[in-house]
């Protein structure tokens, strides 16, 4: 009986020690803040999505390097889209607000995958309707396809009612202030999720 009790006590000690070790290891990790916990898909180090070369509504050539020092949130869409594109840009405007003073350090970029209909004038007026700081970029058909391919983004024109609509990836890509692709955030995620991740990118994580 006494032997059993002693064994049980010893087992308890071993377990308690093990638990303590785990706890301490956990604390350690928290102290080092080694791995940031993103709510979006972590694309850090991905061998794609390195850059783009597009045109802004003023006719200037634009590349990712132009936005260094700011976190970038980038979305592929088209202005004839009544649903997800406005929703994505409304969310982006909300994210900017959630960041408070750091909102100035966020550049939102809307890349049209329908350059045939999205003329510079349309893109400019469209992005400005959500936030005057948002920038719409475009390229010709070939450049648009190359850009989407570089980001593994999908789009396709689908005929409807004598016209066409566009199927397209609804992910938002986030870049850190060094211009490195870091995250893909999903359409279903909230402005809060987006702001959470962008705050970390701005903090150098």
């Amino acid at each position: 009986m006494a032997f059993t009790a002693r064994t049980a006590f010893r087992s308890f000690l071993v377990l308690a020690l093990a638990a303590l070790t785990v706890l301490l290891a956990g604390c350690n990790r928290t102290d080092n803040v080694a791995a940031p916990s993103f709510r979006g898909l972590d694309l850090t180090g991905a061998p794609y999505g390195r850059d783009f070369r597009l045109t802004d509504p003023e006719g200037r050539e634009r590349a990712l390097g132009d936005y260094k020092g700011k976190a970038v949130l980038m979305y592929f869409g088209f202005t004839q889209c009544p649903d997800v594109c406005p929703t994505a840009l409304i969310r982006a405007a909300e994210v900017k607000k959630l960041l408070g003073a750091d909102g100035e350090k966020l550049q939102v970029i809307f890349i049209t995958i329908d350059p045939e209909r999205d003329t510079p004038e349309v893109i400019k007026a469209y992005t400005a309707a959500f936030d005057p700081s948002f920038i719409g970029l475009y390229g010709d058909a070939k450049r648009t396809r190359e850009t989407a391919d570089e980001f593994k983004a999908y789009y396709k024109a689908v005929p409807t009612g004598g016209s066409y609509t566009m199927d397209h990836s609804a992910l938002s890509y986030a870049f850190d202030p060094q211009g490195r692709l870091r995250l893909a955030l999903r359409h279903e995620q909230t402005a809060d999720d987006y702001a959470h991740d962008i705050r970390q990118l701005l903090a150098g994580k």
Binding site: D83, V84, V158, D167, A170, H187, E188
Partner: peptide, 13 residues
């Protein structure tokens, strides 16, 4: 109808 399929937005009559 709008549908999200594998993060792709599809809009169909």
């Amino acid at each position: 109808e709008m549908a999200m399929v594998d993060n792709v937005m599809k809009m169909r009559a």
